[in-house]
Amino acid sequence: MIPYIVYSCACIFLLILKTAVLSNFALFNNFYDILLPVVLYLGLFRPLSQGLPLIFFYGFCMDSMTGGLFGFYILVYFLLFIAMRWTIQFLHARSFLLKPFIVLVGVLIENLVLFLLFVLFHRNWVVSGSFLHSVSIQLFWAAITGPFFLIAIDYTQIRFSDWLEEKVSMERKMENKRDRIS
């Protein structure tokens, strides 16, 4: 249960970071979807039973906070999660080939799905210069910060798992002691 709470809090933290902090700086106007690296990480490194409910929760939060089509982020996160599960059947999750490019590919897939949905639901929609400009800036940010994001999440997860294991073993020891005394 604890990992679910931690990842849910991480979702809320990242959403606040994006909507209330980064939005104050014009430099981050076209920053990519900040929950994307976590979704990719869940797909690559976490078990299906843990990752799946969390990505639905992430998608639901994003869909609620944005003014776009409701259900878009649920769909995109699910597709990315499936894509990551499929990828690790061929490549090792910690492969040096994956980390530098995975967020970049994720951002590209997200924008591609958005493009397809626009074409599907708004037939008179055309690719504008501002759309391409925004996509290119998102890709630029993903290329620069994406690998570091993944490394930071991985590092935090490892430290957290160690701390959790240590705590559980301590509790077990205490219980054993109590049993012996009684």
Binding site: T19, A20, S23, D33, I34, M62, T66, G67, Y73, L114
Partner: peptide, 10 residues
């Protein structure tokens, strides 16, 4: 707060 998505303006 502003929109977390670069595609929506809310």
């Amino acid at each position: 707060g502003k929109d977390p998505s670069p595609w929506s303006k809310t």
